[in-house]
Every structure is written in structure tokens, then in C-alpha cells.
Amino acid sequence: MDETEARERILAAAEGLYYAKGFAAVGVDEVRAAAGVSLRRLYTLFPSKNDIVEAVLTRKHDEWEATLADAVRAAGDDPRGRLLAVYSYLEQWFCTDGFRGCAFINAFGELGGTNPEVARIVRDHKAAFQRYMAALVTDVGASEQLAAQLAILAEGAQSTAAISGDSRAAAQARAAAEVLIDAAVA
């Protein structure tokens, strides 16, 4: 197994374990065993657990941006429909097996107070989402204030769905988004 494959196996195993059990609950040896790599190989690629956590969050950020952008693009050319596609994307995600909320919110809740790098990564991720929403809102002809409101709806839906286990949080957020969008562009 080459370095690229070992790295991928470690990150995939860590991501799955962290999402299922929590960042603090999973040790390096559990990641190593799940990845099927030696401890020496793991520590060569990731000198500390923090390095693994940071790499998982960076990878998760890239995945989130790509899959969200794909969902929005699939909504077509209508700016309003593209904004609402964010909530359809969330609903599909909330219905997946093993949905446990936003990995970034989870990481911040567990590690953000004691790990400044994790806190920075999470803040950067959330700021990127705000900028993405701002670009979509600009296309619909509304102000950045609407972007902040719509992002808060999406963030709240993620937390609500994770805690309640009810994917309807996305549809409820979408209904509220429709009202806000209509009021902003009226």
C-alpha cells in the first residue's frame, strides 16, 4: 500500500469513526485498526491525533462544498430555485442512514474550546457557507442580510434534525426560506 492509499484509508476510517462515535471518544489505535495500517505508518503520515482530526475536517469541507454545489447546479438556472436547492440537499442528507448532524458543529462542540486549530477550521467552514449563500442571494437580487438569515435556517435545520432525528427540519427551513426570499425580492 502506497502513501496515498494509506492516507486515504486512515482518513476514511477516522471520518467514519468520529462521525459515529465522536471525536473525543475515538483513539488513534482504533483509527489504525479500522484503517488496517500499522501504527508506525499512521504516525508517519499524521504525527498526532490533532493532525488526523484537522485532515478529516479539511476533507469534509471539500466534500461539503462539492456536493452542495452539485445539488445547486442541478436545480437549473432559476436563482430562487438554486437557493431553495440548498434545503432540498439538506433534506436528502438528513434522510441518509447514520445521519448525526454536522461534523463541524460536532467537532466544535467537542474540541472547539480546547483546540484552537479545530475552532479555526470550523469557523472557516461556516464562513465559506455564508459566502456561498451570499453569492446565491446576489443572483436572486437580494441583500447579504438575506444570506445570513438563510444560512442560519440551514444551520438550525442541521442541529434540529440531528437532535430530533426528524428530517422534516429541512422542509420546515425551506418553507421559512421561501417566505424570506419572497419578502426580500418583493
Rank of each mutant, 00 (worst) to 15 (best):
F94M: 06
Y19H: 10
L136K: 08
S167C: 04
R82A: 01
N115E: 03
A33I: 06
K21W: 12
A183R: 14
V137H: 02
A170M: 05
Q172G: 11
A119W: 01
F129R: 05
T114E: 13
D166F: 06
D78P: 05
A127Y: 12
I10T: 09
L84I: 00
A186E: 15
A66L: 11
L150N: 01
G98S: 13
M1A: 15
I10S: 12
R168I: 11
R7D: 14
A175V: 00
A176W: 03
I52C: 11
A25R: 13
A66W: 09
V31T: 02
G141R: 01
V140D: 05
V31N: 05
A128P: 04
L84G: 00
K126C: 04
A103V: 10
F23K: 02
Y132M: 09
R59T: 12
G81L: 01
A154C: 05
K60Y: 08
S48C: 09
K60C: 04
A14P: 03
D77L: 03
E15F: 07
D29Y: 11
A170Y: 09
L153M: 02
L83A: 00
I163Y: 12
V118Q: 04
D97A: 14
G156M: 07
V37C: 10
L84Y: 00
Y18S: 07
L150K: 04
V118S: 02
A184G: 11
Y87E: 04
D97I: 08
F94P: 02
T138I: 05
V179M: 03
M133A: 08
A170F: 08
I10R: 09
R100I: 10
A151S: 12
V28H: 10
V179A: 07
R174H: 01
S143I: 02
R82V: 02
F23E: 09
A6D: 10
R82N: 00
Q130G: 05
C95F: 13
K126W: 09
T160C: 14
A154Q: 07
L180E: 06
A177Q: 00
Y19T: 10
R168L: 12
A74V: 00
V118T: 06
G141N: 02
G27C: 08
D77A: 09
R80V: 08
G81P: 02
A171R: 13
E91L: 08
T67P: 01
V56W: 06
A173R: 03
G109N: 14
E110M: 03
A171S: 12
Q130K: 10
R32E: 05
L83H: 00
A24T: 11
A173G: 11
